[in-house]
């Protein structure tokens, strides 16, 4: 079949709970349900954006996929194989194919290693290129990421935030991955530097056919870079779909509120805002039924009791909300 889609990643009913220790004997008194039944797929060579307020479980989702955290339940299928069934050794090799770039380019680089070593360390460890070609390989990767060869001997503190993020990207890229989790990669950078890094990520994607899971709380950046978007709230995906559909026609009341909160750089635009009341409830003790019901302006009786099932509204636009149950 020719129009069968090639999904590089399939996440099914993924759960990640963090036990809360406490009480007199230090036993487990409850769980922080950081990721609570999340399912999605990413097509090879595309970018899926993951948005939502801080604490909703975006980073935990990314890390659990890479097995930087062990899942509580569910499965992660990468290139057709169950990531959680891999042995330690297999996992090590798999890690070269799945990489992560973090938000903070300051703390994620060892201050004691020169840039060249930071980028090349894992390449050597995994024996990815013959020793004779190593130097040239690292130089090429650096050039691809907009770093100069003579930066190799410099240390992270000599670089600006934007350049450090290029180093982080180069380090990930050096392992020749298929898939990169970008966890708020530009959130700590100034807009002009943000643009440079975003353009770099897009160029690398085009050149190498990379797949990204792009985590960000900045909706305009996500709209720009993503092919599909998932909106998370309190550990669950409330809406997923093609970027155009989600932005042009958000369905879930939470997505609507989130989008209406974006400040627009136009002083003539006075927007009608859906101001969300209150704060996000604690993921240790999420509300019953629809987890958004405590802040939802359209909350109905059923919402407080029954968690809404995913509803496909066409074109892969899936929403979890009782408002759309009858369609």
């Amino acid at each position: 079949m020719s129009n069968e889609k090639d999904y590089i990643l399939e996440v099914n009913h993924l759960k990640k709970y963090f036990p809360i220790k406490g009480g007199f004997f230090g036993g487990v008194t409850g769980n922080v349900k950081a990721v609570d039944d999340v399912s999605f797929k990413i097509e090879r060579g595309t970018t899926m954006g993951l948005v939502g307020e801080s604490g909703c479980g975006k980073s935990t989702t990314g890390r659990t996929i890479l097995r930087l955290l062990e899942k509580t339940d569910g499965e992660v299928i990468f290139n057709g194989e169950d990531v959680n069934k891999k042995s330690k050794k297999e996992l090590r090799d798999l890690r070269t194919k799945m990489q992560i770039v973090f938000q903070d380019p300051y703390s994620s680089l060892s201050p004691r290693l020169p840039i060249g070593e930071i980028i090349g360390e894992a390449v050597r460890e995994h024996g990815l290129v013959p020793a004779a070609e190593y130097d040239e390989y690292i130089s090429k990767i650096m050039e691809e990421c907009g770093l100069q060869e003579h930066h190799k001997d410099r240390y992270p503190h000599e670089f600006s935030g934007g350049q450090r993020q290029r180093v982080c990207i180069a380090r990930a890229l050096a392992l020749n991955p298929d898939f990169i989790v970008c966890d708020e990669p530009v959130s700590a950078l100034d807009v002009s530097i943000q643009a440079q890094v975003i353009n770099l990520l897009r160029k690398l994607q085009k050149d190498r056919g990379l797949t990204y899971l792009f985590i960000s709380h900045d909706l305009s950046v996500v709209e720009h870079i993503s092919d599909t978007v998932g909106v998370m709230y309190l550990g669950g995906l409330v809406e997923t779909g093609k970027t155009e559909d989600i932005f042009a026609n958000p369905l879930h009341p939470y997505t609507k509120a989130l989008f209406s909160a974006i400040p627009m750089p136009d002083p003539d635009l006075k927007k009608e805002r859906v101001i969300l009341e209150g704060d996000i409830p604690s993921p240790a003790n999420p509300p019953k039924g629809c987890k958004f019901h405590t802040r939802c302006s359209e909350c109905m009786g059923i919402c407080k009791e029954v968690a809404p099932e995913p509803k496909d509204m066409g074109n892969g636009h899936v929403v979890r909300c009782h408002l759309y149950d009858d369609k």
């Binding site: 307020e53 805002r273 969300l276």
Partner: peptide, 10 residues
């Protein structure tokens, strides 16, 4: 977060 930002700016 943007939602809280909107509240605070308001």
């Amino acid at each position: 977060d943007v939602t809280i930002q909107a509240q605070i700016l308001d």
